[in-house]
Design a protein around this nucleic acid. Structure first.
Lengths: 336, 336
DNA sequence: TTGAAAGCGCTACCAA
DNA sequence: TTGGTAGCGCTTTCAA
């Protein structure tokens, strides 16, 4: 039999209201009573039921975390940061991998609503904001990480993706590259759009136009490898001398494609990644990449969300952190 | 105002019991009533509260997942498999990164108990089984993945770690290596102990003894790099010609240490990893490693756990899957 | 086939 | 400072 608040009340000879008060540190309870009740709780190894508490208090102390794929190192690192900061503030986190599919996002949104999570952190790409409607309609607080919907006035933590793309472009152009290609994420991903825009506009400003045919999109490694192979297989001058990839996983796909096609990286093609996950530091060659301060972002988004939960009337905040180019071995001046 | 079962009952002109019955597909409800009620639920966009339901039915349809670190690619991949299979069977999953610390494990165990999860999957190393006592005492079903406590009669899914270690030893010895070192995980990790044992005994059987000084332990990349540096810095014959690492992350630490010390891998030192995470395929050089069928294991452990939840009296099952050596570029015959 | 009512374990309000 | 009690939204007998 599970021991309940009644057992404690009875053992202490007080009412459950008093026990509840000591549990929540509310109301007035005399020092002695408090100590006595605490002791009894301890003796009976009593732990209040979070379920029952949630039913009345309306707080589950649980957050949802919507990401495309928890096995993707970038999101796994985010998850860890979110978990840690959540834990620190008293929240558990439920993982939801959506594969960037609106349908899955919608299903998970409905689920999280049913489970009455206190808030949801969204790192997944969304096509129609309506995929989130189960959450939004029920006024479940939401915050974006590494994603943004400026129009919607939702708290978010992002990096300056445009600047990140721009930094990559500057780097490649300074090295002397003129024939640039982009391996982007699908257009649903706002951050990817910005990176592409930053890269493209910066290149254009330096007099380097990027052909549409040299901008392709892919959503995961396998796919990225395929698209990169297409890019690389155009022989001779058709082939780009550098590829900017919108995340490290895609960059690895490009690396693999290059290897299979016997295109030497970086000698015959430079590759730039994005995110600076653990992957970037272990590839062959190690990836030049645009770093996001992942841990910091995860921590910040939890804080933003919890803030927003506690003071829903305060204006939403957006935090924009700067990206940082990390130059490793995958980029060199073009040959010839 | 949230719509409740009462609203539905009222709108349909029936009792809440009837509504509850159609919700759960229980009891007898006439076709017409059922249809009508379903329609009304839909119109009112009604979703039953999982909290309230949990309070009475005692099922939260939530599982806990205890891992050392969700940002570790191996566990991230496990998490994804667990999430997918859980989702398929109707369960959500709560992530808990323990850093292999009993104290954190104990804290999370207590938390999961309070939150009344239906079951817990354990992939974290445990020193004292008592860290799990909040779970065990309350008879919350538990299953191990990639960890084992044979004595405890708890369902588990593992690979044959001994065979994995043995396979690595056979491979290195066949290549001609005689001076072997081991970069293990801490002794709390049962799987690591078995890998080491398999490796060591197999080597011994082939006439290759491994000095105690050449067996070191580390718990994460940074640490692994340091330990590997120690191993590698013993100049001349003192230096091992091959290192067997108990996971890919440690192997990467070794790779990095080697690079810093200008020890060429694989020419001057071969390195074998374990797990075959995504990392192993992207390193420089690509890692020879012992593969675990991660997705399959994650799926199996959820099934085992749910089975066990549904039929607690059936005997616990253990599933042991075979590891598979994947030879890549980090192992070659020793030089000279 | 349907409904009334008793909880589940807790919080919160009001009264004492 | 303490206690009584009415819910929270649902499941589950037991009767009708």
């Amino acid at each position: 039999m599970k021991t309940t608040i009644y057992d404690i009340a009875q053992a202490a000879g007080v009412s459950i209201a008093t026990v509840s008060n000591v549990l929540n540190g509310k109301g007035k309870v005399s020092q002695e009573r408090r100590q006595q009740i605490l002791r009894i709780m301890d003796e009976l190894n009593y732990k209040p039921s979070a379920i029952a508490s949630a039913l009345t208090s309306k707080r589950t102390y649980t957050l949802g975390l919507l990401v495309p794929d928890i096995s993707n190192p970038f999101f796994a690192e985010i998850a860890r940061a979110v978990e840690d900061e959540g834990q620190r503030l008293g929240y558990s986190v439920l993982i939801c991998s959506t594969d960037n599919k609106d349908e899955k996002t919608a299903r998970y949104s409905a689920l999280l609503r049913q489970k009455s999570v206190d808030g949801v952190i969204i790192g997944t790409g969304i096509n129609e904001l309506s995929a989130l409607s189960p959450l939004l309609k029920k006024n479940i607080p939401v915050a974006f990480i590494a994603r943004d919907y400026p129009a919607e006035d939702i708290p978010s933590v992002i990096i300056d993706d445009y600047a990140g793309g721009a930094a990559a472009a500057v780097h490649l152009i300074e090295l002397g590259h003129r024939r640039l290609a982009i391996l982007a994420e699908p257009d649903t991903i706002s951050s990817s759009r910005e990176r592409v825009r930053g890269f493209r506009e910066t290149a254009a400003a330096a007099g380097v136009e990027i052909e549409d045919a040299l901008i392709v999109a892919a959503s995961e490694l396998r796919d990225g490898k395929q698209q990169a192979a297409l890019l690389l297989s155009s022989e001779g001058t058709g082939r780009p001398s550098a590829i900017f990839c919108c995340n490290d996983l895609l960059a690895i796909g490009a690396l693999q494609a290059a290897r299979e096609l016997h295109v030497d990286v970086p000698q015959h093609c430079s590759i730039v990644g994005f995110d600076d996950t653990i992957l970037a530091s272990v590839t062959d060659p190690a990836l030049t990449t645009v770093a996001q301060p992942i841990a910091q972002m995860g921590q910040a988004v939890v804080q933003l969300l919890v803030d927003h939960m506690e003071r829903p009337d305060e204006p939403r905040r957006r935090i924009v952190l700067p990206p940082r180019l990390i130059v490793r071995q995958s980029t060199v001046p073009p040959s010839q």
